[in-house]
């Protein structure tokens, strides 16, 4: 491309001088330098990306305790606001259902009274039934159910990483 501008050499570059007898060529010095420098610049760059992934999180643990089973009235749906989940207590036993919409993680609304009660997500209007199934709206899949266990002190215990099917009941 230099041809476009014609020959505009005011002085010979370092290259002309470099033709003197040299034990190590200019090219190999530059290649070593560039490769090593790139390693020592890209390496820390990648390390800095690793740095952005914390090893310890200051979040609420995924396993936590709820109230005692007796504190949930029979045939009721209780909303645990802090934990963002519903606790169903019906004739088959206890179930814990996530109240986090599967669309974009808003908290879905409360269930109304009656048999065919539904829960609506306030953000984009997804509608869920008591089995967590999507009735309408943009939500891509049903709400999750979590495994319920009993803690040594007699309270219900949930691990939100332990997802179970909707017909899995915990019996006291």
């Amino acid at each position: 491309m230099s041809k476009d501008y014609g020959d505009y050499q005011l002085e010979e570059g370092g290259r002309g001088e470099a033709k003197e007898k040299e034990s190590v060529s200019r090219r190999s010095l530059l290649s070593i330098g560039w490769i090593a420098s790139l390693v020592s610049l890209i390496g820390p760059g990648l390390a800095n990306i690793r740095y952005l992934f914390p090893n310890v999180l200051y979040e609420t643990p995924t396993a936590f305790k709820l109230r005692k089973p007796a504190e949930y009235p029979p045939n009721s749906i209780s909303f645990e606001e802090d934990r963002r989940l519903f606790v169903f207590n019906d004739r088959h036993g206890f179930r814990a259902m996530s109240a986090v919409c599967t669309h974009l993680r808003c908290t879905v609304g409360p269930f109304g009274p009656g048999k065919g009660a539904t829960s609506r997500c306030p953000c984009h209007g997804s509608l869920f039934d008591k089995q967590g199934r999507v009735l309408s709206g943009p939500a891509p899949r049903s709400l999750d159910f979590f495994r319920l266990t009993e803690s040594p002190d007699g309270r219900l215990q949930v691990d939100t990483q332990d997802i179970v099917s909707a017909d899995m009941y915990f019996k006291v």
Partner: peptide
């Protein structure tokens, strides 16, 4: 350049 580059790479490792 070559020497400093190699030292830098060794130090990073």
């Amino acid at each position: 350049f070559a020497i400093v580059g190699v030292v830098a790479a060794v130090l990073f490792t």
